[in-house]
Design a protein around this nucleic acid. Structure first.
Lengths: 352, 352
DNA sequence: AGGCTCAGGGCAAACGATTGCATCAACGGT
DNA sequence: ACCGTTGATGCAATCGTTTGCCCTGAGCCT
């Protein structure tokens, strides 16, 4: 037998006032409109009855739901849960809750989820799925709903965003490889229609150019998704028909894991035959065989900062969009070592 | 400038009917109440204007939100995302969306999230966080909201649940170890106030008893959480003051990963010095050093089945609670091998 | 032809909270 | 003593949809 929920009306009756008065007493912003005495009576009644306001009714009337829509491209990627956690923690502090949607990188699904959220009156969106140009973005803007981008950013920096400095990161990775003595370095770039894929690829070219190294087409592959399978496929392709190489820079850690599979399959070992470097330092990546050299940043912080940016908008600040870049840190682990031509010598040579 | 959303009223005006009629025409269940001709006019108008019903208003009126609250103890555990995915996929097929909440195993936080969801009129809950006796459960039941448990189950099987056969799984693991020749087997049990922790510990004792083996206290440790840190702590404790052993059965994969850390720290190697077996076969666990022997089951299916059970309830079926047990499969990988006393001999001995 | 049924569709009342406006008492100033 | 002011509270409309009820007109039977 369902227990009847306690309503504002009940609190009002118990306190001997009109529901409107009770409403005002309960809302901190309007509490000063009622006498302190009445306010206390209402508060006491609410506490005693265990009153919880009906978020749905409130949302219908106020047009605010205190709910934020969060779109994640792939929740199975361990990179995202810590980000989501950061978001939730920060949002909760301001009384918002996150509605999380998984899109699988599928546009149709993304649209469905987006509409669902809209119908539920979300007050804002945090998107980790943004393509460089995304129809959803303009649509949300037009509807007047604040949007913040996470991890990926938009083509024109027109939206508040928080991301790691991808280009810098990959330049650091390339510089690490060249300082180990590598000269023939392959690249498995991520999808070029999202900012992370593009910026990291740019970073790769910039890093190679700075070192005076060439990037022949045979040492370059573009993944269609940031997935293990695509990493596997791309490195296999490079190994099959590309120029020989001694190291590979992968667009992210998932692609790097795919590289491990391709190396196993080809009977090559990492780092003896080929060094691998990833991006993201996602959870568990330090426990792989071998532990992956990669670029780290605080995932949790990406979430909290995105939440902060969104809350700023929700609270009315309307300045130009802030784009926040976190600085990545190179974490050197067992997957990178001097190339075989150096270690092949009797000496256990490090390179300068 | 925010675009005004199109409302039922607009559709009705465009079709030349009353909003009530439009509402009936739009709802498949009541469509037969209006003439086919009118229904078509309304449908056409709705399509033309791009009408999306306001979920909030509807939910206020109908007391149904088509939203399901999902409570997850730790989204950072890669076990859960595939489960959530299964849930979402199955729920979406029936027009429901999942509201996901992370509880961090924190009771207070769990309660807050639970209340939030209640205020948002969720139609049901799927809990992966259930303690063996949980005040939230009785509370939800009393409020008349259907609840399904996932992964963990309640003490008295009074609620629809889907879980893997934990006891059987660990018996299989123990039998695997004994057949390799292990006799001194340690156990790192999970928290005993959740069903998975308890059932797996029972399975361990049952398996050992069946093999006629003893379980001295010094080879037993109880983790306070299913975390890497706790696994680390527990194995370290056993190594420090326990009887010597050649294998350890961990309460889940996270605890097993913690064991890897403790072994590294003690200068022991797996599986040469100590075999390790986990539970769950969570993503990435097959890529560790060494790949972990563990018990597998379809995580995705746990999600879909839980959704199915909940949908049954939502659609009015009121029979006794079904408890669904999935059968685990032992996946033998590199973390288990015959004990050193056997492999120490020149022959590459297998054991019967 | 009159009365019945019945399909089709409009009216208005919900759902529970918020909020602009009206009311009303008390009070102070002149 | 009267009037304007102010502080506290009640009234009622509103958010967008659904749904019980009633009304209307057409068709049918005797």
């Amino acid at each position: 037998m369902p227990e009847p929920a306690v309503k504002l009306r009940d609190v009002a009756r118990q306190a001997g006032v009109h529901p409107a008065t009770a409403s005002r007493a309960l809302n901190p912003d309007t509490r000063l409109l009622v006498s302190e005495d009445t306010a206390n009576r209402v508060l006491a009644a609410a506490a005693e009855l265990g009153y919880q306001p009906d978020a749905v009714a409130r949302s219908l009337r106020t047009r605010r739901s205190h709910t934020i829509g969060v779109l994640i491209p792939d929740l199975n990627n361990p990179l995202f849960p810590p980000i989501v956690r950061g978001l939730e923690d920060r949002l909760e502090a301001d009384g918002y809750v996150a509605l999380i949607g998984n899109t699988d990188g599928d546009d149709a699904r993304e649209r469905r989820v987006f509409e669902q959220m809209r119908a539920r009156h979300v007050d804002g969106y945090v998107l980790a799925t943004a393509h460089l140009r995304n129809p959803l973005l303009t649509e949300a803007i037009r509807a007047g709903v604040p949007v913040v981008l996470m991890n990926r950013i938009a083509a024109d920096n027109s939206l508040p965003s928080v991301t790691v400095d991808n280009e810098l990161g990959v330049r650091m990775a390339v510089s690490h490889l060249t300082s180990l003595g590598h000269r023939d370095i392959a690249c498995i770039a991520g999808p070029q229609d999202v900012s992370t894929g593009l910026a990291r690829y740019r970073g790769f070219r910039a890093g190679m150019a700075a070192a005076g190294l060439d990037v022949p087409a045979g040492r370059l592959a573009f993944a269609r998704a940031f997935s293990i399978e695509e990493g596997h496929r791309c490195l296999r392709q490079i190994l099959a028909d590309g120029q020989p190489c001694t190291a590979v820079a992968a667009g992210n850690d998932m692609l790097a894991v795919g590289c491990y599979l391709a190396l196993d399959e080809a009977g090559l070992s990492c780092p003896a035959d080929m060094s691998v470097v990833g991006f993201n330092d996602m959870p568990f990546i330090n426990m792989l065989r071998p532990p992956l050299t990669t670029l780290a940043f605080s995932h949790y912080q990406v979430g909290t900062e995105a939440a902060r940016l969104l809350l700023e908008r929700l609270n009315g600040s309307a300045g130009p969009a802030k784009v926040l870049y976190l600085t990545p840190e190179l974490i050197i682990r067992g997957s990178t070592a001097p190339p075989a031509t150096l270690t092949g010598r009797p000496a256990q040579g490090g390179a300068g």
